[in-house]
Amino acid sequence: MDSHQSVADVVDNKGGLRLQWSPVFAGALAAAALSLILISFGAAIGLAVSSSSPSWRDASSALALLSGLYLILQALVSFGVGGYIAGRAQHVIGATPADVIENNDGLHGLTAWALAVIVGAAVVALVGLSAARPTIQNRPSATAAEPLLSAELDRLYRSPRRPANIDIGYERAEAGRILLTSSGHSGVSTEDHSYLIQQVAAATGLPAADAERRVDSVMGDARTAIQRSRRSSVILAFSAAAALLCGAVAAWVAACAGGRHRDGASLPEWMGGRPTTAVPIV
């Protein structure tokens, strides 16, 4: 009898530990949707960790830090809601011990978090590809320097005497590639520096001395812009990684809380539940 009972318990426990995909999908979709809403709201009020606009270079460090903190906060909220749904909607099968149920709830929340991250990454990739395709088709000679150093390239080739029907797209792309090397350890080589001065003088009609002063000024501005862009990229990468890690923890904890609410049990003290008072034995 005891052996049959133990076998039944094992079967029930195995049934209770099965991963149920309906709660996982529900929690993941809720987390991805809420994350998109919160990120859109943050962008609407000016909270962004990076931007392609040249005016972003003048943004203060406090704004970058606040934007990173908001990214982490929205991850805690969105993944917490998704994990709670995944834990609350799970159906426990069989007579499973409480600690096993709690771990299973946390597993559902963590799986919902992973699926939401994949969905969000896929949406971002599709949006990025759709936004980059028209630029590549319209500007075949454009380089990575064009969105970053567009203001510097405009100032480099600015000339009121140049005819309007002359296309300098290739010259801009070539100058952009040269300016990108200004932030390296060796900087712009002497050959590239002289070549860029000749190109600017030929395209704008400036004397060689004026063209050299303009090139030197633009190189200094480009070096500063690249350094600030790198700093923003570091803040973005760190904030995104911290947000994802905090989101995983929030999804696990919220799923465990959702499972306790589902079973009618009280939350432990580390989840914010009321402390249990010991009943004196008479």
Rank of each mutant, 00 (worst) to 15 (best):
T143D: 05
G106R: 13
M219C: 00
R274E: 13
Q227A: 15
G109T: 05
I118A: 15
P207Y: 00
A125R: 11
D210T: 11
A59T: 11
L179S: 09
T181C: 03
R162T: 11
V123G: 04
S229R: 07
G176F: 02
R231S: 14
G272Y: 01
G42R: 02
S233V: 09
V249Q: 06
D12P: 04
S141G: 09
L180G: 02
A95R: 15
A64Y: 04
T276V: 14
A114Q: 05
L17H: 00
F238D: 07
A131S: 14
W56N: 12
V282W: 05
H261A: 13
R88I: 00
V81Q: 03
A211F: 04
S266I: 13
S52A: 14
L244S: 14
S194L: 07
D210L: 14
G272K: 01
L76I: 10
C246V: 15
A62Y: 00
S217D: 10
A59G: 04
D2A: 12
R158S: 12
A32R: 09
G87N: 03
A30N: 06
D167C: 13
R162N: 03
Y70H: 02
D105T: 09
A175E: 05
A251G: 09
L148D: 05
Q20E: 15
A131R: 12
A173W: 02
G273F: 09
L29G: 10
S150E: 12
I37Q: 05
A265C: 00
L34W: 07
G83N: 06
A86M: 02
V188T: 07
D210S: 14
